[in-house]
Amino acid sequence: MLEIFTLFADWLVYDLLGLSAATKLGDALHFFVEDTTKIFALLVVMIYLIALLRASMNIESVRAWLVGKNRILGYFMGAGFGAVTPFCSCSSIPLFLGFTSAGIPVGITMSFLLTSPLINEVAIVLLGSLLGWKFTLIYVGVGIGVGVLGGLFLDLIRAEKMLQPFAAKAYAEAKQADVKAEVRRLNMAERHQFAKDELIDIFSRVWKWVIVGVGLGAALHGFVPEGWFEQHLGQGQWWSVPAAVLLGIPLYSNATGVIPVMESLITKGLPVGTTLAFCMSTVAASFPEFILLKQVMQWKLLVILFCLLLFAFTLVGWIFNGIGLLFLAT
């Protein structure tokens, strides 16, 4: 079914524009046209369908689910909800406070906040269509793993003691009893309206990232020689993983912009683990986000969180460089 996009790109680039597949420009342009049209079509379908399904779910009901849960279960649920519940990063502070003031441990809240930017329907569509389902599963597994373990660690070091005073007070005085979420039953028309709003909202936010990401990917695809990364940043250089993680931090982007670049990096021979580490650090460890979190956390906790992420992504990179090639040999 997806060949239609290849055929369209063939027609547009080779027939209509008369470029040859053998030229760098023709190759890069074909890649760009095929991938953007495919991704746009898949995004429209997926965002709409998923929104239709989760129309009646909101952040209040997630909170009601998480209140008073067993810790270990809580981390998995926090990360799991983070993966399926979309929320704008500008809401992370009120969300953090809403969870904290309901007595949800900081670690469980952070499981949610760490996983949320890493995993969402847009990321899944992009990974699935560009890098295949195996890689997508690995990515989702690692994303949830980082959320769960990160949350667990933050509670072990008693992160709640390192919040800003007003947030710490809200946690200490939390009343679990008064968080009830009303779940409204929606009819089909309401679900459609919600899904339509979501589609317009998400699509209008991500389409330019897809263009930028795929454009960069196409440039890499057409102009960087095969195996370039293998020669320069291959398996042997252990430092390439932490370097990729560090490089990813100032390059703040969302999953939409980075994943198309990942595809090209991998096909050019950048090891899977290094690519994964780079992508995750670009998406999940960003300065603007950290500045926001300063409103509720003390510097000490921010620094710990930052180091934790760097360490986690580096470890992920090393592990997958070790086993990745066996795994992804297709």
Partner: peptide, 8 residues
């Protein structure tokens, strides 16, 4: 937080 708002 006082208004109980979690998403903006």
């Amino acid at each position: 937080m006082e208004y109980g708002v979690m998403s903006t």
